[in-house]
Nucleic acid binder design. Structure first.
Lengths: 124, 124
DNA sequence: TACTTATTTGGCTATTTAACCAAATGATCG
DNA sequence: CGATCATTTGGTTAAATAGCCAAATAAGTA
């Protein structure tokens, strides 16, 4: 894998990482309903002012939210609303996670050994 | 926000966190093409055997991948393929992140003060 | 049974992240 | 200008994460 490809995956991971926090996830949903100033978000969150601000900063740096100063307040809004679409799939993961299926007992696939994997590759 | 709601967001965040790593993201895409044993993934990844194994463990615990033992090998596969759909939106975030728009200079919205926010709430 | 192969586990260290507090900034109001 | 409000920044500490190495399992194989 070349360096530019690695960089791409790092960038993608960074976006996901920005979303991967309960408080931030919550705030993103909140912002999906319309813009909010920091103190409005603060009220719903049970954390310190500076903590909320830092979370928003993470979202902003990831490019997920937008901020606009108006008067003495900072108004945040969701820049890329499609991130909300993740939720459906995440719920699916959570639902699937519960069952941990035993995966059909009578499995007859030959079990290609790893060494053989490489050999098979050579043969191709 | 009540405790069960918090727990929901924590659970969701955990799933995203599992995806939020370049190597894991890469492996998920790889697994989307079909099942692979650990050593096959290792070849494409430039990391230690144990590191790869741990990444897979994270994905498994999050409920994203499935594992099945066959012979001496562990075959991993994508359990919930919809996670791939995230990529489109992530690219959108990355694309949007580039431009950092100045958001229309002549903005005339009154700038509701935060104190006033609370007051406004009371008035409703 | 001993040997090799495939993978996981258990430390260990370096790095990153989260949270809080206190201080700094920036804008408006008196 | 000085006070106040909204928010960010810096510092600190605790906890989580990533990576590597070495040892432990587990399943064939000789």
């Amino acid at each position: 894998m070349d360096e530019s490809r690695k960089a791409l995956y790092r960038a993608r991971a960074k976006v996901l990482k920005a979303l991967a926090h309960p408080t931030r996830l919550w705030m993103v949903e909140k912002l999906a309903q319309g813009e909010h100033c920091v103190c409005e978000l603060l009220e719903t969150v049970d954390a310190d002012f500076s903590t909320v601000s830092k979370h928003l900063s993470v979202l902003r740096q990831a490019g997920i939210v937008d901020v606009q100063k108006r008067g003495k307040q900072m108004f945040y809004r969701l820049k890329v609303p499609c991130v909300l679409e993740f939720m459906g799939c995440i719920e699916a993961v959570l639902a699937a996670g519960a069952q941990d299926r035993p995966d059909a007992p009578g499995m007859t696939t030959p079990g290609t050994a790893c060494r053989q994997c490489r050999q098979r590759e050579k043969e191709l």
